[in-house]
Structure formats: structure tokens, C-alpha cells
Computed example of a mutant assay.
Amino acid sequence: MRIAIQHNSRYHYKTPPAFALQKARLTPLSDFRQNVEQWQLIVTGAEQQLTSRDAFGNTCTLIRADPDVEILEVSAQGMIDTEETQGIMEQAAGVMPLFVYRQPTALTAKSEDLAALAESVRQDDPIDMLHRLMDAIAEKVLYEPGVTHVGTTADEALQEGRGVCQDLTHIFLVAARHLGVATRYTSGYFVSGNDLGGDASHGWAEAFVPNVGWIGFDPTNRRCPDERYVRIASGRDYTDVSPVSGVRVGAGSERLTVSLAVEQQ
């Protein structure tokens, strides 16, 4: 599938910051299931300082705001060709040791309820077990924007019973890791149609199954990612893959507006 993507993030500062440095994880890589035909990162009101790979292999670009800037805009756009791979997102284990993806983080700490959820689907066949886990999460947690925030933990989302793709994915990570499966958070985009979570950058889980590779599981839409999905970054949780993060000094309030278009060509 040929997919065109246009993702704009605009920061409005009430008072220009004395200093602002942003890290953008908005650049996809070509692999066996997707080919980056064309991609560019355009910034207005700032200067790109450095582009490099982080410890997880993600492409990161450091952006420093211009002096006295009131509006800073980051635009990622391009064309990606994807293939259907039956949910297999990557065949090799990757650059990071697998044990890293079995460890808890601040957002994916285990609780009794999360462990009980995991145990309710435990069985010998790992792929069937992970499908059952995805279904169980989709049944327990309703997709509803505006209830949670970027700092909501997996357990808090499970107790709330509502959340967005980040929350459902974090719950999947905790439960799968409890079951001994190396699991990572992946960010990207997908051609959504009437599906959930397509109005912003999307998140899903990827679990490593020996002799198969990393298999994607999207509990928000209760399916494995197909050719409609474009991978951008992966890590231990959302913190490792957030599209834009950073620090600022001396600014007043900040307002962020985001627009996204993901279309099949």
C-alpha cells in the first residue's frame, strides 16, 4: 500500500522562551515491510541541530527554538510503501537486548490486577495467548479520549476502564511481560477509515516470539497491524517514542495544536 503522511505540530508560546530544545522522533526507517520512498522534516521558528539514532535504533532530531519565537512548527511529511506481513513487524531481535523489554517502567509497573489479567489468558501457545490478551484488554478498557493523560500508568488505566491507544498498549506491555514475553511500545500511523485512534499518531505493542520475530498487536482496534500501518519508533513505553518532547526555560503558557492526514494513494 502506498501511504501519504502529513503530520504538523504547532507550539504557540504566550511569552517567547529564553531557551527551548525539542527532540523529534518523526522519521520512519525502511525495513522488510515498509519502504520510505520520500520523507522530510521541516521546522519553522527553530533550527535542526542534530540527527542521530538513539539506543533503540530510532531516528531522533534535536530542534532548538529561534530567539524570541512565538510559534514553533514541526512538520513531518512523506510517502511510504508498505506490504502485508501477517502482523510480523520485524524479523530480527533488534539492537537492544530482549531482557530490556521484559523490565517494568514508571508507566508499566505491575499490579495485582494486571497480573490477574495476564494469568487469565496464560497458555502454552504464545501467539494464541497474546491474541487472547489483546481481546481481553479490548473488552475491559473502552477507547475514550480525554479521560487519561501522558502520565497515566497502565494500572490507573485498567482501574478507570477507559483510555486511548497509549493506555491499552501499556496494559498489554505489563501483562505480556508478566507472562515472560519481551514486549515493546511502537509508535506510528495508520490509514484509519472508521477505526479508532487514527486522528493522531498511533501506538501499539510488539511482542517477540522466537523463530518468528516481533509481532504487532493493536488492542485499540483488536487486530494485528497490516499494510495500513507505518512504524516510526519503538521503545520500552510511550516515553521512549513520544513524537516530540523537550525542555523550555523562561516561557509562559504553551498551546499545542496538531493536524494529521494519513491517506492511501
Results as ranks from 00 to 15, higher is better:
residue 189 Y to Q: 05
residue 142 L to M: 09
residue 97 P to N: 13
residue 30 S to C: 01
residue 192 S to F: 07
residue 18 A to Y: 13
residue 231 R to H: 07
residue 155 D to F: 07
residue 243 P to R: 03
residue 112 E to K: 10
residue 151 G to P: 02
residue 223 R to I: 10
residue 246 G to K: 12
residue 91 Q to F: 09
residue 75 S to Y: 01
residue 14 K to P: 03
residue 48 Q to S: 06
residue 36 V to R: 00
residue 188 G to H: 00
residue 78 G to Q: 04
residue 242 S to M: 08
residue 87 G to F: 02
residue 227 E to Q: 15
residue 242 S to C: 15
residue 43 V to R: 07
residue 60 C to D: 10
residue 152 T to R: 05
residue 78 G to C: 09
residue 75 S to G: 03
residue 88 I to L: 14
residue 44 T to W: 06
residue 59 T to V: 15
residue 4 A to E: 10
residue 79 M to Q: 06
residue 105 T to I: 14
residue 171 I to M: 05
residue 25 R to A: 08
residue 241 V to H: 00
residue 100 V to G: 01
residue 2 R to K: 04
residue 48 Q to N: 05
residue 147 V to C: 06
residue 46 A to D: 02
residue 79 M to T: 14
residue 54 D to I: 03
residue 206 E to G: 02
residue 164 V to L: 02
residue 15 T to D: 13
residue 45 G to L: 00
residue 65 A to P: 04
residue 24 A to N: 11
residue 106 A to W: 08
residue 122 R to N: 15
residue 4 A to I: 10
residue 187 S to D: 01
residue 139 E to I: 12
residue 144 E to L: 09
residue 236 R to G: 12
residue 219 P to H: 06
residue 182 A to E: 09
residue 102 R to Y: 04
residue 202 H to G: 13
residue 128 D to A: 14
residue 155 D to Y: 02
residue 98 L to W: 03
residue 90 E to Y: 00
residue 209 V to W: 04
residue 126 P to F: 00
residue 51 T to A: 09
residue 257 T to A: 15
residue 101 Y to H: 02
residue 14 K to L: 12
residue 72 L to G: 02
residue 36 V to S: 03
residue 15 T to K: 09
residue 230 V to E: 00
residue 192 S to I: 08
residue 79 M to K: 07
residue 201 S to P: 14
residue 254 E to I: 11
residue 55 A to G: 08
residue 258 V to R: 14
residue 83 E to Q: 12
residue 38 Q to M: 14
residue 87 G to H: 10
residue 243 P to A: 05
residue 189 Y to V: 12
residue 175 A to H: 05
residue 80 I to Y: 00
